[in-house]
């Protein structure tokens, strides 16, 4: 398929395609948590939603041999349904209490998967067919970005923003706050689930340890590092956090040290994330104002 490309690109692709796929999947995950963050909810359930999507889709492929398209859709719908069920009680909480409850939910999912027969327990699922191709990820990422961009500019986006800034004022403007919080939570679960399904079909193998606490925090870090004031930020953060460990490979043992230091520096000096349109605009204007 890559015949028409220069030889060195084929080499590059065969070595790094998994990495490029990961960037796309992580971008989807970062966007999924951006949804809940955009209405002021600190939910850490997205790794678990990803896991549900990954397992449901992989099991459907392995046991029922459903087509890849339906498997992807099911991988999105399954965690969305779970989000709908747990959303009503969990979203009554706010701030760190919501974070704790969603983390606990993540643990419940992980431990359930760890102990079930059908999920392969701690050994996970092996031999998932490699069905994901680059264009699948690119298309779904593009659709997600388009959908979220449209959402942001509509009454839904304004309602999210209003809820984030002042819940009481939003209620008194006629916004059904509980419903919109649930919408953000369920949509986030759907996107994370699709990301999980895509991931499962190019890594060949999935296990419970990929969907635990650290992964939940990683997803949050991507969004926060990139910046949550727009859609570019989460994708940028996902790319950096995926590529940085690879770029720092030459540092050997110091790799995770430098990786951590970069994160600390960004959080210290750019508290609103790397991509913050307003700051960048101000900075450009300031430079324009200077005499040459």
């Amino acid at each position: 398929m890559m015949d028409w490309l220069p030889g060195n690109f084929s080499d590059f692709w065969s070595t790094y395609s998994t990495l490029v796929f990961s960037v796309g999947v992580h971008a989807l995950l970062a966007l999924s948590i951006w949804l809940t963050l955009s209405c002021g909810l600190l939910s850490l359930a997205n790794a678990a939603f990803m896991g549900i999507g990954a397992y449901v889709s992989a099991l459907l492929t392995l046991h029922l041999e459903w087509s890849f398209g339906t498997v992807l859709l099911a991988g999105g719908i399954a965690p969305a349904v779970v989000a709908l069920i747990i959303g009503a009680p969990v979203l009554r909480l706010s701030g760190v209490y919501l974070a704790m409850a969603t983390l606990a939910f993540g643990e419940v999912v992980r431990i359930t998967v760890l102990n079930l027969e059908i999920t392969g327990g701690p050994e996970g699922l092996n031999g998932i067919p490699l069905a994901t191709e680059g264009w699948h990820i690119a298309l779904l990422l593009a659709l997600t970005v388009y959908g979220l961009a449209r959402l942001r500019r509509s009454k839904v986006g304004r309602a999210f923003e209003a809820i984030k800034e002042d819940e009481v004022a939003a209620r008194l403007m006629g916004v059904d706050v509980d419903r919109y919080k649930l919408l953000a939570f369920v949509l986030g679960g759907f996107i994370a689930g699709i990301a999980g399904a895509l991931n499962a079909h190019f890594t060949f193998f999935i296990s419970p340890r990929e969907y635990g606490f650290e992964n939940a925090v990683d997803i949050l870090t991507m969004a926060v590092l990139g910046g949550t004031s727009g859609l570019v930020g989460p994708m940028l953060g996902a790319s950096i956090l995926t590529l940085l460990p690879e770029l720092l490979r030459s540092l050997h043992d110091f790799r995770s040290l430098v990786n951590g230091a970069i994160l600390v520096l960004v959080v210290l000096f750019l508290p609103k994330g790397i991509w913050e349109p307003r700051r960048i605009r101000n900075w450009l204007n300031r430079n324009k104002g200077k005499p040459a």
Binding site: R158, A162, V168
Partner: peptide
Amino acid sequence: IRIFKEMDLLENVMVGRHEHLKY
């Protein structure tokens, strides 16, 4: 006062139109 400080004025008022947007 409880306005939405991080939104512009037009968006603030448009939040008030929320229920009247039926799409």
